[in-house]
Each structure stands twice: as structure tokens, then as C-alpha cells.
Simulated scan of single mutants.
Amino acid sequence: MSAPPRLYVLVAIHAPTALIIRRGPSNWWHLLRWDLQTRTIEPGAWFGGTLYPRRCDISPDGRYFGYFALGTGEPPWRTYFAVSRLPWLTALVAWQTYGTYTIGCRFARDGNLTISGAMNDQPFHGRYPNKASIEVMHTNWIRRDIQNELKRGWRPLREALEIPLDPDERDSAVLIQRTSPTGHGTSLILAHTGVDFQRHGIEGVQTRYFRKDRDGQITPLADATWADWDHNGHLLMATRQGAVTVHEQRRRVWTETWTHDLADLTPNPAEAPVWAEGW
């Protein structure tokens, strides 16, 4: 039996859209658009190189994907940063990077793009229709690993809580939390416990998730490899078994109300549609 895929999700800040980044089998990557309003999944690109999901992002309106990739082609398509239309990888603009020493990107609401990486400041392919700038890199690797959460309202956990972590994780864990946007008093807690490329995790990052209810009870989300809130306060999760799920609170009880299994997919590369080839 093959190992379950590894899943990571990017939720648009101002739209009911998410991008699922799926790894497996082996080095295959697959992009899928997740419509959080209709709860439907739209398959997109398959890629046989390497993506770095924690160094990627999607635009606030959910239309564009800024991604860092290690390709299989000749330079400059070896290591590069590009922008495409969800859920495809057809590069509308691309910059060559100096190896994999790249941190990530940030889309502004007005369409401007900031990239943090060791790279050329001018694209070698296409053009970006708004302002694109390259910023000085930092070397805080944990901050890099959780930058997408910090952009989406997660904040360092200031209060002293008894988080049920293994003894070897407690000293190194970095804890951040995000309260539900609907104000029902429930928070998610993410524990970054280090990097181990021999264990299940996107880019080797080891994370543990917990839910803290308004009465202070802390519940481990043992199956979650990723979790966040949607704009309506529903709990979104990607599981270790290769599914994405939605949980809703009903009469103070959290119930799984939707699930989509992504475990048994076979690579099926296809040409991107015509609309994905332009801005």
C-alpha cells in the first residue's frame, strides 16, 4: 500500500477560495482549487519537479499563485519564482533564483507583489502587470516556515497553556494561535516542533495542531497536517490520510460536515486551459 499524500493548503485572504498543494506519489505534485463556498474541488496542474509550498502564496482574491519551484529543465527554468493562474503552473512571469535560497512572497490587496529571495530583480519570462519588488532576505527559518499563517492572522501564543506535546518537543516548540473570525471564542493553536525530512511533513516541517474552546479545553487535532479557519468560522483541515475536511460547531459540538478524499490519485498531466495562459 502506497504512503498517503502530503497536503498543504493556502486560503485566499479576501475570497472563499483555497489552493490545495498535494505531494505524491513520490515527487509528483498536484494543484487543486477548493471552492469553500460550494465545497467543490477543481483539479489543475501536475508537476514532476519540486515545489516549496511554505514559500508560496495565493493572491487575496484567489486568482493567482506565486510559487517557488525546482524544475527539470535547463536554466533559467531550473530554480525560479513564477506567478500563474489557479490551479495551474503556466508561468505568466518568472524570475531566475540563485539556487533554493528563497524565502517566499506576499501579494498586496492592490496586486503588488513582494518576493524575498536570492534572485534576479528582472523577470526572464513575461512581465508582472503591477509593481513587483525583491526584498532583503532574513535568516529566521522558523518565521519562514510559518509566514503564511502569520499573513493570515495567526499570532504568537502569549498566554501560558498546558499544550500536550511530547517531552522532546516542548523545549523547541514555537506556538502560534488564531481565534475564529466569527468570534465564537474558539482558537486554533499550531506548534512548530522542528524540521525532519525523514518524517511526514511539507518541506520537512513538523507541526501539531490543537483546538482551544471558549471554556479553555484544549483538544489535539491528531489527524491534522494543516488547519485553519474559513471566513465563516468553519474549521478546515488536511489530514494525514490524504483528505480535506470541514468541521462546524453545532450546539457547541464540533462535527465533520464535509470531506473529500485525495489519497488515491494517479498523475495525469494535462495542458492548461487557454484562460490560464494570460492575466
Rank of each mutant, 00 (worst) to 15 (best):
A3H: 12
P4H: 03
P4M: 10
R6E: 15
L10C: 09
H14R: 14
H14V: 06
A18N: 05
G24E: 00
G24M: 01
S26Y: 09
W34G: 01
D35R: 00
R39E: 10
R39W: 08
E42N: 11
G44C: 06
A45T: 03
W46V: 07
F47L: 09
T50D: 13
L51Q: 04
P53M: 02
R55D: 08
I58L: 02
R63K: 04
R63Y: 03
F65H: 05
G66R: 05
G71Y: 05
G71N: 07
G71E: 00
Y80H: 14
F81I: 08
A82C: 08
L86M: 11
P87L: 12
P87W: 03
T90V: 14
L92H: 03
Q96G: 02
Y101D: 15
Y101F: 12
I103A: 06
C105A: 03
D110R: 02
G111C: 04
N112S: 15
N112R: 15
N112C: 10
L113F: 10
I115H: 07
S116L: 11
M119A: 10
N120P: 06
H125D: 10
R127M: 10
I134M: 12
V136G: 08
M137C: 12
M137N: 06
T139D: 15
W141V: 11
W141C: 07
R143P: 00
Q147S: 09
L150M: 15
G153C: 08
W154G: 01
P156N: 09
R158E: 15
E159L: 11
L161S: 07
L161E: 11
D168M: 08
D168H: 12
R170G: 05
R170W: 06
R170L: 13
A173K: 04
V174P: 05
L175D: 09
Q177L: 04
T179D: 15
S180P: 02
T182I: 13
T182N: 09
G183E: 02
H184G: 10
T186I: 10
I189R: 03
A191I: 02
G194E: 02
G194M: 04
G194R: 04
V195M: 06
V195W: 05
F197H: 07
Q198T: 14
H200Q: 13
E203H: 02
G204H: 04
Y209F: 15
Y209G: 02
Y209K: 08
F210Y: 00
K212E: 07
R214L: 10
R214D: 13
G216A: 07
A222F: 09
D228G: 02
W229P: 01
D230V: 00
L235G: 01
L236T: 02
M237W: 00
R240Q: 14
V244Q: 03
V244K: 01
V244C: 00
T245P: 04
T245C: 13
T245D: 01
E248Y: 05
R251E: 13
R252H: 13
R252K: 13
V253T: 15
T255N: 07
E256L: 09
T257Y: 02
T257H: 08
H260Y: 15
D261G: 07
D261L: 05
A263Y: 11
A263K: 14
T266G: 08
P269L: 12
P269M: 06
E271M: 11
P273V: 09
V274P: 06
V274E: 14
W279S: 04
